[in-house]
Simulated assay, not measured.
Amino acid sequence: MVRVLVTGMSGAGKSTLLEELARRGRLTVDTDYDGWELPGAVWDEARMSELLDRHGDVVVSGTVENQGRFYGRFEHVVLLSAPVGVLVERAATRTNNPYGHSAEQRAEIRQYVVDVEPLLRRGATVELDGRLPVGELADAIEKLR
């Protein structure tokens, strides 16, 4: 394995994919949790730099404004994508993250697909369909070199 960033819209399946990779014994960091994000939807840059300095074999997930500053530290930036209807439905019904439960948040997700996802696509080295079974997605990540 190598350093991989998995990014994408809310509801794309990033956390589920990381859970599967962790179950397989991979080092993973889901930056939606444990204080990785600072106010303003940005990563704690010192903490992220330290993580990447210490680990050459890690899968990180997140979608934040300053992630592009780290693209050169990852061998692959994987965009996990899905149709907007799938994203909204998943976000509205998930139990592991409250974001997407309100109508306002679902409207934000729809707008982010228009405004943010194209930027993520431009920075990605690989795009995977988040509707695929999680095992297939994990296999694809594990094959990256």
Rank of each mutant, 00 (worst) to 15 (best):
M1D: 14
V4H: 00
G11Y: 00
S15R: 01
L18I: 00
L21S: 01
L21A: 03
R23T: 05
R24L: 06
R26L: 03
R26G: 02
T28F: 00
V29C: 08
D32C: 01
L38H: 11
L38V: 12
P39L: 07
P39I: 12
W43C: 08
W43T: 10
E45H: 09
E45N: 10
E45C: 14
R47Y: 07
E50M: 09
L52P: 07
G56V: 10
G56T: 12
G56H: 13
D57W: 14
S61T: 04
S61D: 03
G62W: 02
V64H: 06
N66E: 14
Q67N: 10
R69G: 11
H76I: 05
V77A: 13
L79I: 07
L79A: 05
A82R: 05
P83F: 03
A91V: 02
A92T: 03
T93D: 07
N96M: 05
N96P: 11
N97E: 01
G100M: 00
S102F: 10
A103Q: 11
A103K: 15
A103N: 15
E104R: 11
R106N: 15
A107E: 13
R110V: 10
Q111W: 11
Y112A: 13
V113M: 15
V113G: 08
D115T: 07
P118K: 11
R121I: 13
R121C: 06
R122E: 11
G123C: 07
G123Y: 06
L128Q: 01
D129N: 06
R131E: 13
R131G: 13
R131M: 11
R131K: 12
L132H: 15
P133N: 15
V134Y: 01
V134P: 03
A138E: 04
D139F: 00
I141N: 03
K143I: 09
L144C: 05
R145Y: 15
